[in-house]
Design a protein around this nucleic acid. Structure first.
Lengths: 192, 192
DNA sequence: CCTACCGATCGGTAGG
DNA sequence: CCTACCGATCGGTAGG
């Protein structure tokens, strides 16, 4: 009976996410990762099967998290404004709490290959379509301005996407303040 | 008399920007680039000095372009609303017209090393400070809502940053429509 | 979990 | 601008 899946595996995945965020997947060697984890590169192959598998695990962890939260939000009876607010809050929180993994899902998914690349793109498209539908229905319900749905979708997705690049909690702006300010700009606009 | 700088050099830089955008700097080999340009990897060294030099040239071309436009905008007598609008328009246009180089300046600058890395970060900080100052003065002048300046700055910078990732002209949304919609959301908000 | 090592590929140079 | 090649480093395996 083989027991391979220990918490060492999770440690490797966590450190990999941090290094991939800093240097990119292609810019991170298994020897770099080994040094960070505290073992030889070769030893990590007792816990993982390949460098590609690490990337896949992180990417699909992120896409699954986003999609399951989207499904929850879709099924509430809230107004469209509140649904979009909940999604914006979701993006900000995942980035504050698990910025390294989110960064990999945003930037390094392009190093996925074959089926996995296709599956990931599919998952992302499903998420974007669900998000877009909420905007579309919100416009139809008169809650939103009649903007182009795709432009609105990607403007929102992008606006919240870089929190993990520059936001450091405990330096002037609290997470609550961050959420509130971003929401104000996206929903009410910067201009008075 | 050595004449090294031909238009072949520019071809190499252009193809490099495209490949770096697609696969990242670390994920692009000089052999990949040679194949794209149409010569052997070794032959490109008659036009460029190193792979690093290619990256540096692209990154500083981008940062210099942004900074020189910012300086122009700072020196106009326009309202703060119009200045911010001009900056948003600048970002969108550079991305539509030269998306590959902008992408490298946004994502691959992290592979710069030593002095060049420090210089690039410095240039970016200078740009961000100038942009932030315009927002700050706009709030003081009563043109903008009293939001947190840093949050507003990065929300705007991020919101326009992904145009080059999903925007394809001639597919439903014209560049003018794109600019107008993004500006509406950022300045007036999505909600009615 | 380590040592020792594999074939492949990397950025770059020599020489023509 | 190409052929031929360099030392270094890559992801991964064998064997213990």
């Amino acid at each position: 009976m083989k027991k391979v899946k220990t918490n060492k595996r999770q440690l490797i995945l966590d450190e990999a996410a941090k290094l991939f965020k800093e240097r990119g997947f292609a810019g991170t060697s298994m020897r770099d990762l080994g040094a960070q984890v505290g073992m030889e590169a070769a030893s990590m192959y007792n816990h993982i099967n390949s460098k590609d598998e690490i990337l896949e695990t992180i990417c699909f962890y992120v896409s699954n998290t986003y999609i399951s939260h989207l499904t929850e939000i879709e099924n509430t009876a809230d107004s469209y404004v509140d649904k979009i607010k909940a999604l914006i809050r979701l993006h900000i929180r995942l980035m504050v709490e698990d910025g390294a993994a989110v960064s990999v899902g945003n930037n390094d998914w392009k190093y996925l290959t074959g089926n996995k690349l296709a599956e990931f793109k599919e998952a992302r498209k499903r998420y974007e379509r669900g998000f877009a539908t909420l905007i579309e229905e919100g416009i139809a319900a008169g809650e939103f301005q009649p903007v182009n749905v795709s432009v609105a979708l990607f403007t929102i997705l992008s606006a919240v996407r870089w929190v993990e690049l520059w936001y450091r909690p405990g330096r002037g702006v609290s997470p609550e303040e961050l959420e509130e300010n971003i929401m104000t700009i996206l929903l009410n606009g910067l201009a008075r």
